[in-house]
Nucleic acid binder design. Structure first.
Lengths: 336, 336
DNA sequence: TTATTTTGCTTAATCGATTAAGCGGAGTAA
DNA sequence: TTACTCCGCTTAATCGATTAAGCAAAATAA
């Protein structure tokens, strides 16, 4: 690599000390009383040499890397990809760079990502926490690491979070199905200890109970798996032979996809034989012969709020804020 | 944040100099002849204090950040999200962390990402270059920045690249359509100066010519736009009223999506009235009533080869290697 | 015994920036 | 004239690690 230009090179060229150059480069020429002509000379020299400060050296000295670590379940999943993009843009607006890691919903992987990011001295973390990682998160809080949880959180921990109001989302999704005449509504969810799943299920249950359909309440909890085939099999096993279902509420995008594959395979008619509502949009659902009604999350809001909350946390470490944002129900053919 | 443990803390605890601690932490205790009992004591102390080296300080000293910068068009697009995931995993296997940026196919954005990444001292870059950025890439090469281009490249520049053999892919896609009895095959591509687009078009043209369908050759070049609606309109304008088309070859994922929306809207029958082949897989295409035949790229291979090429380039800067990998044609209902 | 090598450690420079402290000289006040 | 304040700059410590150079003691060779 052609010799990088250092602050020292500029200092030598102009014939001053490195301190002056640093002051000027950081816009402190007034405060530090640098002479006008020197300021000009330094600016010119910096321009000519195309000086770019070395962020690593700056980071070591100032203790701030201007870097945010983002841990999602899997950046290849469109939901997280889109969120990552919003976060990238918002971070960049504020002078931060984002490093991204995928945990695969696995506690061990999440732990090693946290380690990697933390010894790279990130200024803060945005995490979509995996099941069973409350201890990891608690440890971060104890360390004083600025931290925002996204999509899910641990009610027992004092952390900032930006999530969906999942209870309300499920409740209204169920109400919508009921308003369309569906009664025997089954929910298909992941088996998980995480709050977002619990809330989605709770919303379903309470909406069903409120409509006096308590006896139709049925929740199918599928174990999490990367293999779509495996997920499909689990769903198949449970729907199969079950005549007493006239609608399905899927708790996630991937469950919806798996479920639709099964429904396609079996030739079940949507929305006549079965009504469907899923979570999180996806191009795929537009192309299903009966476009799928979805609970849509405010991705932009989630992403920007996460970043801004994190940044304000860096300045004011004790200000805990929590957001439970509202969904929008995008009603289409699969539920009417 | 609770006081970070430094090498000095360990040195003081054990009662030795920081040099010894550094040697032991880097596994150089043999080479540097550190006494056995001291090695043990240092290891113990490091464990007790839970020492994690400060990567920033290491980077400043060693000149290597163990970081790779990845610039894609948009991390929210599944194709790039999946690629990013493969790259993340392969990089991590080799001790590297990835920072990601989205250029939106825009030269200015790409330029500022390169600046950001380079002044963060990344050890190398993997770039999906935007149209009109040959000068940026040339500048990087001149600087000696280890660099791998992905998905596209500039034939006039001496760089490593990992791409698809786009010519062959289009050629075979067209041959497939022809073998299914289609003749009036139109290609829908983006207007772009980039080689990948040219090659896709060239493959189409030559396959058509070879089959004596030269008079049916028609390439529709759509200007790139973020707005799907806009893209749809462009496509609509060109297909509309054009009776002399019995098959469409879409040059990208997003064009396929836009095209299918139009086809859906118009109620055109696939594959009877029109045959379809698209580039790059996508869940969405599975759910189209006639699942779409696609040119599939070897994502894993592209990602891992990009990372490995980049790493070998860091050690051996002059070794230029170029990969033009083979696609696989995933034949489904839309083309038979 | 003396000279040489080996062993096991310390010292201190260094990476590239930031920034508190200090130092002359000019200007102002007494 | 002397004392004080400002101004404009330099010096040097610092962040946390790495690593070449060097030193004293012990071991070995002559």
């Amino acid at each position: 690599m052609s010799a990088r230009v250092r602050i020292k090179d500029i200092a030598e060229k102009v014939g001053v000390s490195t301190a002056l150059v640093s002051y000027v480069m950081n816009g402190k020429e007034k405060e530090k009383r640098v002479g006008q002509d020197i300021v000009k000379k330094i600016r010119e020299a910096a321009g000519e040499l195309n000086y770019q400060p070395n962020r690593i050296a700056q980071s070591l000295r100032t203790g701030s890397t201007k870097t945010i670590g983002l841990i999602v379940a899997d950046i290849a999943i469109p939901f997280f990809g889109q969120l990552a993009r919003v976060i990238e843009d918002e971070a960049s607006k504020n002078g931060f760079t984002v490093i991204i890691g995928s945990s695969d919903e696995d506690a061990i992987k999440q732990g090693s990502l946290i380690d990697t990011f933390s010894y790279r001295q990130v200024d803060g973390l945005i995490i979509v926490p995996s099941d069973g990682t409350a201890d990891q998160i608690a440890a971060l809080v104890k360390q004083g690491m600025p931290l925002v949880l996204m999509d899910r959180y641990f009610p027992e921990l004092e952390t900032c979070h930006v999530c969906l109001d999942n209870y309300k989302a499920s409740y209204e999704a169920v109400n919508h199905l009921i308003s369309q005449g569906y009664q025997q509504i089954t929910m298909i969810a992941y088996r998980s200890g995480m709050i977002h799943m619990h809330e989605r299920i709770r919303g379903y249950r309470e909406a069903m109970a409120a409509a006096n359909f308590a006896n139709y309440i049925k929740v199918l909890e599928v174990p999490y798996s990367f293999s779509r085939t495996e997920t499909e099999n689990s769903i198949e096993k449970c729907i199969n032979g079950n005549k007493e279902i006239d609608a399905l509420l899927f708790a996630t995008n991937s469950l919806t996809t798996a479920g639709l594959n099964y429904i396609n395979k079996m030739g079940i008619k949507v929305p006549d034989e079965i009504g469907i509502v899923g979570y999180d949009g996806n191009e795929a659902f537009d192309f299903f012969y009966a476009p799928i009604t979805i609970v849509e999350q405010p991705l932009n809001e989630i992403g920007t709020k996460s970043v801004n909350t994190l940044i304000s946390l860096m300045n004011d470490p004790d200000k805990i804020v929590r957001f439970d944002l509202s969904h929008s129900l995008n009603i289409r053919k699969s539920s009417r």
